[in-house]
């Protein structure tokens, strides 16, 4: 259980990072918190020839409000976000989802950018970013581009990050008044990866649902919105029957394909039904400012 040999680089600036990325090309991997990459290296599932340690780049470590957006630097540690009053205030959904993210020792090191670039389909944060319609800010020598979260996750451990690019920032819209949210998860133990998780936001005005966003995690090779369930909610009064209908649709119209010993397709479908219902109920309750 030892990693294969690699050459170690530790750039001290973003320009330096782009330089070493350019020098080593696809032979290199970026090392952030190391809580996913290093286990893969210890198993030799990942055998990079070069490891670029970005832990010295404090300019990627921040949480700030930019107008209507909450911007989080890719190198921000999970526990910093977990404890952040600003995140709790501006993105209650992300703050709630974080209660399910790993254990404190892992959160001390793990970073949000590392988590999202790793793109584990059972992870909570990708589903949160999709539900909130966030954006990933990618940087390269050519400049900066923004990728909507919905187009960022391409499959298990696969993202839209191109060679020469790195994830620099995560941008999510600040919660608007009247928007309720909830995150529901079942996992074998607290802190474990989800067996199934559902994130939901509801914008309700005069008892009528204006906008609904529902996203699942740990059900398929990537997290995704459940648009057919969203559609039955939008424009409707949110009563119990309507929420049950949306939960039923979430269960029947999603094909669970991420099957492991924690859950087969039938079980995950049951979880989708139950968790969607719970998430929508709670989101509608807490939508009152």
């Amino acid at each position: 259980m030892k990693p294969s040999a690699f050459h170690y680089e530790k750039p001290s600036s973003l320009d330096g990072l782009l330089d070493v990325m350019g020098k080593h090309g696809e032979a290199a991997r970026i090392l952030a918190g190391g809580q996913s990459l290093v286990p893969m290296m210890n198993f030799r599932l990942a055998t990079p020839e070069v490891l670029i340690d970005i832990n010295g780049l404090s300019e990627l470590d921040y949480i700030r409000q930019d107008g209507d957006s909450l911007s989080i630097g890719a190198l921000t540690r999970h526990n910093v976000i977990y404890d952040s009053p600003l995140v709790a205030e501006l993105s209650p959904l992300m703050a709630e989802a974080y209660k399910h993210v790993a254990h404190t020792t892992i959160r001390n090191r793990g970073t949000i950018g590392g988590n999202l670039s790793h793109a584990d389909p059972s992870s909570e944060l990708p589903a949160v970013c999709i539900c909130l319609e966030g954006h990933m800010i990618l940087r390269s020598k050519q400049g900066t581009r923004e990728v909507p979260a919905g187009e960022f996750f391409l499959g298990a451990l696969e993202t839209a990050i191109q060679p020469g690019e790195f994830l620099a920032e995560i941008k999510i819209p600040v919660r608007k008044p009247g928007v309720g949210s909830a995150f529901e998860e079942v996992s074998p133990r607290r802190g474990d990866f989800a067996t199934t998780a559902v994130a939901a936001t509801l914008q309700i005005d005069g008892g009528i649902c204006q906008t609904a966003r529902i996203a699942h995690a740990a059900v398929a090779d990537r997290p995704a919105r459940i648009e057919s369930a969203e559609a039955v909610l939008e424009g409707s009064a949110l009563d119990k029957a309507r929420i049950n209908q949306a939960a039923e649709i979430a269960a029947s119209e999603t094909e669970p394909s991420l099957i492991n010993y924690h859950g087969d397709a039938d079980y995950k479908r049951d979880l989708l039904r139950a968790l969607t219902k719970r998430a929508l109920q709670r989101a509608s309750e807490n939508s009152v400012n």
Partner: peptide, 9 residues
């Protein structure tokens, strides 16, 4: 702060 020594170089 605690860290896994097996996940650090």
């Amino acid at each position: 702060r605690t860290a896994r020594a097996c996940l650090l170089f």
